[in-house]
């Protein structure tokens, strides 16, 4: 039995680039096949049936046909355009940050259904009035887990001793927390307060409904943000460009 010539999949559109005068190359994230590139023919023409249905930050049901190089999007029906997100500068920017993370960390043709579900849930949460800081941190922790970078938060990753309620530190290179003693030998690690560690541990293992009940002051919130985004940058070995934009919006 050969592979079918066309198939249907849910997709979240990550980005699009123009191809020639009328076509677009889409980068989409799907549950079964992970990241894919596909051609949306005629999507730039006014009145195209694909047109606005293949904008980034859209959850769609797509029909694709196998192509020689790239598959071809033959139909795309919007399931959720996350309009509440797109009409708000901060919300849209948070959404673009998620898409950049997915695009940077995933490879093509490597399905990860739980990660797809997480991305979808997170985009929906950003449409609600929940604290975007909690939504993003919860996403980052679970995103890293599904990609195999779950940070070890329960015992010192060097000496294995249980962590005491004092200022410990987060070692990006070791992928987890170090006790104060081991921290001294790892000058590159990031100090983490007792409360920060408590919250990270809770979020790593609880469902979102529980996670969002956490109340925190802005100082704690920015500590958590720096720790998580520092770890992400370390793993990626480069800057996440949308972080600079989120910082700019926070400042202005």
């Amino acid at each position: 039995m050969g592979t079918p010539r066309s198939y249907q999949t849910q997709a979240i559109i990550i980005k699009q680039t123009k191809l020639g005068e009328a076509d677009k190359i889409l980068t989409i994230y799907t549950p079964e096949f992970g990241k894919l590139k596909a051609v949306a023919k005629g999507a730039c023409r006014p009145g195209s049936k694909l047109g606005g249905n293949v904008e980034p930050l859209t959850h769609s049901l797509m029909m694709l046909a196998r192509g020689r190089n790239l598959d071809i999007v033959t139909q795309s029906q919007t399931i959720d355009g996350f309009l509440a997100l797109k009409s708000d500068l901060w919300g849209m920017s948070c959404g673009l940050y998620l898409l950049e993370l997915i695009d940077s960390f995933t490879v093509e043709n490597n399905g990860n259904p739980p990660l797809f579900a997480l991305l979808l849930d997170t985009l929906r949460r950003l449409c609600q009035t929940d604290s975007s800081e909690i939504v993003l941190r919860y996403f980052e922790l679970h995103f890293l887990h599904y990609l195999g970078y779950r940070p070890q938060l329960h015992q010192c990753v060097i000496c294995n001793s249980p962590l005491r309620p004092v200022v410990n530190s987060f070692s990006f290179s070791q992928g987890g927390i170090l006790c104060p003693h081991c921290s001294e030998k790892e000058p590159e690690s990031h100090p983490l307060s007792v409360d920060s560690l408590k919250i990270l541990r809770l979020w790593q293992d609880c469902d979102y409904a529980t996670a969002k009940r956490v109340k925190m002051k802005s100082e704690l919130s920015s500590q958590l943000r720096q720790a998580m985004q520092g770890y992400i940058k370390y793993l990626l070995q480069r800057e996440v460009k949308s972080i600079a934009w989120l910082e700019e919006l926070r400042g202005s």
Partner: peptide
């Protein structure tokens, strides 16, 4: 909606 467009195929954002 662009002239010549079809309501059925308009995306949510445009139609809204």
């Amino acid at each position: 909606l662009p002239f010549g467009a079809d309501l059925e195929y308009a995306d949510d954002a445009t139609l809204g």
